[in-house]
Design a protein around this nucleic acid. Structure first.
Lengths: 200, 200, 200, 200
DNA sequence: CATGAATGAGAATTCATTCAT
DNA sequence: GATGAATGAATTCTCATTCAT
């Protein structure tokens, strides 16, 4: 059922893997074809241009690959959670746990997202999932009424920033878990219904 | 009395202004000396190198200039607020309001911060102010106990992202005010003490 | 069998040749990538950067190429000479004869040597060969005892200067031969044992 | 009688002094107006262009100044020597002794001479003095007959090279004296008449 | 399919010189 | 006289892309 987001030929996969590692190491801005080719033990950058239509194409492939990997890690944890609030918490916590498993992928993804035009599909995809979650949660009466788009932007980028910070310092799994709980607490409180007995 | 944080000679100021506008327009990554020189009606990029020791120096000057401008707008509004919570709200709301006044400055600053090394003074300065505010608020018993650093990172970057989004769409002042209130609500709730009567 | 000290691909060789000629013409200091590219009919300096890691790399390749050429000319003449003194003479004379055969190579090499840091391998290599020759000659009792290093420096640079001067005026082979004899005489006398019957 | 080789106004002298020090430090090639201005505590390079017609003019002034200084040191020592051979020896030895007194001046002069066009007056001046000395010595029958020009070039540049090497290592005065004697020995032997009893 | 050489635009920086004040 | 801002050409190097083999 799963559409093949996979990178096709061996060469493509090899290049994508190298690109992700390079982006994670030196950042999006400095991830030139040269550097990626060198990292992938390719003798020339022509190779990359041959397999990808351009830098955007390569980046898209990287994002797809990363989402494959991160999805495989996070999705089961999110699915195991019951209810909108628990799923929000599971998202945040599994995202931080992910840092311990695939630090390069995480760092690369966030760096790409940060630098990509905000209209890019990758960015919008992540936003859309969150927005939908909040909207249905509001409909179900478990999230307070707030401007879904604005809150989504704030929370996702905040989460990204914490994840990047964590990835930079490579902390212990227990510390990652703590950060996840901290942030999940923050987000749950931020979106929770007002206490019912409140006079306001 | 105020030491001149101002950009010194006329030319320097002109270049800084142009640089800010260019960064706001095309982004940090593409803000080359060429582009800035063209924007500032300078005949050569050598001009810029003459007035600034390098790209870092120019960027630092830009940040200083922007902080001058934004501080002048936001500080009085923050100072007018009473108490930690109100000040947090004032910060968020005046930051959004600022978008209507100085969209280029806002966009440029955030782009610089995003791309600068996280150790840069500009970044750390903003974080430090927030952290201190949260810490004293916790001591005063108006914020719940949370990991100040983690929460600060999440909230500041979230705010930045909303601000950038707002700057991109150039909404009416009333819409900006609404966004400010939305986000302030979010942050106030996220950091508020638990209701005292709570059974949990 | 001889490992290829040769310049590898055709382009590299072409660039090295052009570089040597340019250095010979305008001197080390003014031998920019631009000039070399123009001389080699390359459309851009990027070409050179593509084939060589930097200016040092190109220069090293030039030196290797020149030493290849000059060695092929001088070595047989030196080897044909018998004894330390005759070999010293053969070195000096064949070096001046070389000017008639490869004036550009000779001029370029000396210019590079002059401007390179004195620690560069090219410089040290030439010195080492001479020093070893003097030392073994002293041990064999055919050269008087002198400070080998100091004398070597003086004689090599003196030889270089005469060679360059000769290269500048492009004299007849017979004139080159005469200059060679003159200088060889000078050096042989300078290093010869004192006459045995000398009272001093 | 001595024409005023002195640098005229205070500013000129200041610039010349700085230029000499900069050339001695970083070499002729990297001795830009910027660097010299900085070294001289001038706020702009325009100052230099104002006082000197161009780089050549400044260099000429440097050479004149250096020759003033070195002449003041060497000339008395040379004049004190009796006879052509002794004067040759005195020249060489005092030149090496000079390294201990004015290392910057020595280094700068040689660097300028090395890089200047061989037709420059500075270069020719030094050669002419030597040539004249050798010629009159030959006429007086104290030097053997040799090609004066060729030998002069070889010996002067050899001397320069040893001097530079010495200047780089900044040895003790006694070591400088030893080097001077070594080289003087070399040159005296190289130019000496054949032993009279020789059958040739 | 794959390669690696070629391309040409663009990057930041340094340079000697000029010129209005 | 003196200044320092301005100039524009030149420097090495990197970039993404193209193309013939």
């Amino acid at each position: 059922m799963q559409a093949r987001t996979f990178t096709g030929s061996g060469r493509r996969a090899q290049i994508v893997t190298a690109a992700i590692e390079v982006i994670a190491e030196v950042g999006y801005a400095k991830a030139s074809f040269s550097r990626i080719a060198k990292h992938a033990d390719l003798s020339s950058t022509g190779m990359i241009s041959y397999h990808f239509a351009g830098k955007d194409d390569l980046l898209t492939a990287c994002v797809a690959e990363i989402e494959q990997v991160t999805g495989a890690f996070m999705q089961p944890r999110i699915d195991a959670a019951d209810g909108h609030v628990a799923r929000l918490r599971a998202y945040v916590e599994s995202n931080l746990a992910l840092v311990g498993e695939h630090p390069a992928a995480v760092r690369a993804l966030i760096d790409i997202v940060k630098n990509a035009a905000s209209q890019s599909p990758a960015v919008n995809g992540r936003l859309a999932v969150f927005e939908e979650h909040f909207r249905s949660g509001q409909a179900a009466g478990v999230f307070r009424p707030f401007d879904v788009r604005t809150v989504t932007i704030a929370l996702i980028t905040g989460l990204d920033a914490v994840v990047v910070t964590a990835a930079d310092t490579a902390p212990e799994p227990t510390e990652l878990a703590r950060l996840g709980r901290e942030l999940a607490d923050l987000y749950v409180r931020a979106t929770a219904l007002d206490p019912e007995g409140g006079s306001a």
